[in-house]
């Protein structure tokens, strides 16, 4: 029973780590489900888009020696630009040919992105130039680095900002309408170009923030950092039911915390939890925990 006692003793710390993981997963899953809803497009390059965002940050912060307050916003803009470019050149000609062809294309794009980053930055790990800080006692039994705390706070602010945008601005309402029914939105006079642009601005912007937050929280960047998140992102988004961004957020919370708890007992099989949850959900509730639409 000592394993169980250990587990209870470490529970607060595990939950805290789970929240850290969830903050990144949430940013990825919200953006991913947004793309999925509007284009009917399962983007298999989303994880690598997050990596790209993190590495743009690396270029500006370490390569160009800019302070993070300048480097990270620049990285977000650069990631959005990259995503718009990729969409224009590669995805747009395929849009009429169905979601399956887009899926293949994005899976290929994931490899192209990852290996382009390897070409310039190599296979080894990097980190941002933020100084190194010791983990501090946040709550009884919970130690986190200041970076993790800042990353979580930042993720929270961005997510709340996004919800505000979607809920209250004209653009947000238009995008939600497009997500509900793209054809209807177009009949009502919305231009596809406009929808496409803003969908990628939000989706890629969130991916970039997610990648950067991951790099800051872990104090580590490597070529596979985003790809490894892809399966948890799928699981989180499907768990949330793909109906509303808040669902994806809840899904991220469940998967993030679940992975930490699962990983405590099965350290070698930590990534397996996402698949188990995914299969379980598809069997039990294909429309997601919150969703009503299948």
């Amino acid at each position: 029973m000592s394993l169980w006692n250990d587990f209870v003793g470490q529970l607060p710390q595990l939950l805290a780590y789970g929240l850290v993981t969830a903050s990144v997963l949430g940013l990825g899953a919200v953006g991913w489900s947004f793309l999925y809803r509007i284009f009917n497009f399962a983007n298999f390059a989303h994880g690598d888009l997050m990596t790209l965002g993190a590495y743009w940050g690396l270029l500006f912060n370490v390569g160009w020696r800019l302070p993070w307050s300048l480097a990270f916003p620049l990285a977000i803009v650069a990631t959005i630009g990259s995503a718009l470019f990729i969409d224009r050149v590669f995805y747009r000609p395929l849009r009429r040919r169905g979601s399956a062809v887009l899926l293949i294309s994005s899976a290929g794009m994931a490899l192209v992105l990852r290996n382009t980053l390897r070409l310039f930055w190599g296979q080894s790990v990097h980190s941002y130039d933020l100084g190194f800080h010791q983990a501090i006692l946040v709550l009884p039994g919970v130690r986190l680095t200041p970076e993790a705390l800042i990353g979580m706070a930042f993720a929270l602010v961005v997510t709340l900002g996004l919800f505000g945008l979607l809920q209250y601005t004209r653009m947000g309402k238009a995008l939600r309408a497009a997500a509900d029914d793209l054809d209807l939105a177009r009949v009502c006079g919305m231009s596809l170009t406009w929808i496409t642009r803003w969908t990628w601005v939000l989706g890629a912007g969130l991916a970039a923030v997610g990648g950067i937050v991951l790099g800051v929280e872990q104090h580590l960047l490597y070529p596979l950092m985003g790809w490894n998140l892809l399966l948890p992102i799928f699981a989180a988004a499907v768990l949330g039911g793909l109906d509303h961004p808040s669902g994806a957020l809840l899904g991220a919370l469940v998967i993030g915390v679940g992975e930490e708890l699962f990983g405590f007992f099965f350290p070698n099989y930590r990534p397996a939890l996402a698949l188990v949850v995914l299969i379980g959900l598809l069997l039990w509730r294909p429309a997601g925990l919150l969703g009503g639409r299948s």
Binding site: A42, F44, L103, F234, V238, A274, L275, L278, I279, L282
Partner: peptide, 10 residues
């Protein structure tokens, strides 16, 4: 079909 892709990837 997307679900088969996700599950087989996993």
């Amino acid at each position: 079909g997307d679900y088969l892709a996700m599950v087989t990837l996993g």
